[in-house]
Amino acid sequence: MRWLDNFVGRLALSGRIGLALVAFWLLLAIFGPLLAPYEVGAVVAEDVFAPLSLAFPLGSDYLGRDMLSRVLSGTRFTAGLAFAAALSASSLGTSLALFATVSGRWIDEVVSRAMDTLISIPSKIFALVMVAAFGASVPLLLFTTALIYLPGAYRIARALAVNLNTMEYVQVARVRGEGRIYIACVEILPNMIHPILADFGLRFMFVVLLLSGMSFLGLGVQPPDADLGSLVRENISGLGEGAPAVVMPALAIAMLTIGVNLLIDSLPRAGGRNAGEP
């Protein structure tokens, strides 16, 4: 636990707030549904769009279902999907970047050009096009979001790898006669892992925002499944009466993404942060 003390000790106040938020939401995503007071799909309240109360801590939705239970299950959906997508994007992007860096110029050119093309399609536009062509299934959303954030992960990793590749210890390894895999995995990868992890956090945040946006448009996760974005959408008719059912899931998303952003920003300098979307 010493490293954890050390880690927390070095964070600024905003970083500690971020860490607490991230930990809170991760725990909720993992254990939350176990704590849910009601069945996710069960209509339990008498009123639709009920206000906050002891029985329904976050009110009820447009059908009279318990919002707390729905937010807990939506959190798992949102966080799980985003985690899987960000993990795929980061790991694939990093591997491609390492491969392009230690391979010849020609391969590097081709991979980089392909990534430049993908990154030139704004993320939401790309997602809309994919959904229009293939329909909004969960596997497609996962694939699409991973693909959308792959080029950004690639760019960051490639910049880091190219920089490390000019280091004298990499040249020493090359002169020793080491193969590409050794150079990529032993000499380069360990020295870029921290900024890559920070970038993974950012990607996770971007995916959460994109997925919720898509669900909010009705083009993301489809009923009966519901992520936090779908919860906002299905209750939007309650906006006129100021129902908590609209605001609560949206706040939940914001707390999660703000937490991630605060935490990453106070990590020891990794460069290239907050450079906007991908």
């Binding site: 004298e168 210890y169 040249q171 020493v172 032993v186 000499e187 360990p190 020295n191």
Partner: peptide, 12 residues
């Protein structure tokens, strides 16, 4: 190499 700082892999 000249610069021992960059000639040794810092994570090994």
């Amino acid at each position: 190499f000249q610069n021992a700082d960059t000639a040794l892999n810092p994570s090994l």
